[in-house]
């Protein structure tokens, strides 16, 4: 079955791959924002994850260690953000933007020796005969482990936030940090941990870009994926499963525009490649125009610094 030269099964399978980086980064940011912290440095953390993951995988020859390295590298950068905003009370928006710029510069420096190298290949999970099923096999059983991991992370975050005490405390801290403090919860510690989780997820997403999706190292490899991840969190109105939908939607658009280009659609390439970003802006405008609802679901203490005074 072909639609204008585009095979739907291949399209779905490739959009699942395309959305892994933004999905991981977005679910990490969702946890951070649920704890009441706005970290705009997702782009910077992703690209640090991309370069650290790439370097680790190339040096060790193991993509698995590469992903670990990517997560750790981005987590280290997010820790800088945590120290600045949680202990030194720096403004979260400014610090987040600085983090992005810093990450872009540092990754470019670190990646200088790695341009033009091929990373070790990340294997597909062997499902045996399942992968040979028509359509379903191509869509569901023919991916690398990170695709399944990203969906698992969504499920785990959803369950933890909804059912566990840890999730309840996290939400409480993001909702009203003064009340949480009065009840004896360690607001700063919880937020630092959330920020580092967000960093690790962004790092995994970034490493996926350089190790699987592209796969090689170039400067500015993330190309705005971190910003899309931030938009997805708002689009999802801070609900984990909607992050999945949002990521597939945005991933789908970017895959579709590539396919349309390849199929020789008579729209100038520039319009097609700007379309995911255009849609991001459009979605954000629509989401925020319906005042009350989506605004109400935002964590009430989002972006506010907490200082335990009297």
């Amino acid at each position: 079955m072909d639609l204008g030269g585009i095979n739907p099964a291949v399209l779905v399978a490739s959009l699942m791959v395309a959305s892994v980086p933004i999905m991981l980064a977005a679910i990490g940011e969702l946890v951070v924002e649920k704890a009441g912290v706005l970290n705009l440095g997702v782009e910077g953390m992703m690209i640090m994850g991309a370069v650290c993951g790439f370097a680790t995988a190339v040096e060790t020859g193991s993509p698995f260690l590469g992903f670990i390295g990517g997560a750790l590298g981005a987590m280290a950068l997010s820790f800088v953000f945590a120290v600045l905003t949680q202990f030194l009370q720096a403004n979260q928006v400014a610090t987040g933007l600085a983090l992005t710029l810093f990450g872009l510069g540092l990754s470019s420096l670190m990646g200088q020796g790695y341009v033009g190298i091929k990373p070790p290949l990340t294997d597909v999970v062997p499902f045996g005969p399942l992968a040979d099923l028509p359509v379903v096999g191509r869509i569901l059983f023919d991916h690398d482990p990170m695709v399944y991991l990203s969906i698992a992370v969504i499920a785990v975050v959803w369950a933890v936030l909804k059912f566990s005490r840890m999730g309840l405390i996290l939400r409480a801290v993001g909702e009203n940090h003064d009340a949480a403090h009065a009840l004896g919860y360690k607001v700063t510690r919880i937020r630092v941990l959330a920020i580092m989780f967000g960093g690790a997820m962004a790092g995994l997403g970034g490493a996926y870009l350089s190790l699987v999706r592209v796969p090689q190292w170039t400067d500015g490899i993330t190309a705005g994926a971190g910003w899309i991840a931030l938009a997805i969190v708002v689009f999802a109105s801070w609900k984990p499963w909607r992050v999945l939908i949002g990521a597939y939607l945005f991933g789908g658009i970017s895959v579709l525009q590539l396919n349309l280009q390849a199929a020789g659609a008579r729209i100038p390439v520039e319009y097609l490649s700007m379309s995911p970003y255009l849609i991001t802006i459009l979605v954000l405008v629509i989401m925020s125009s319906g005042k009350g609802r989506s605004a109400m679901n935002a964590p009430a203490a989002l972006g506010q610094n907490f200082h335990a005074s009297r």
């Binding site: 309840l168 909702e175 009203n176 003064d178 919860y185 109400m296 964590p299 009430a300």
Partner: peptide, 15 residues
Amino acid sequence: FSLFEALNVAENVAL
């Protein structure tokens, strides 16, 4: 009040 407006009564009590 040290309550959380966006959480329900039982969740507030649990905290």
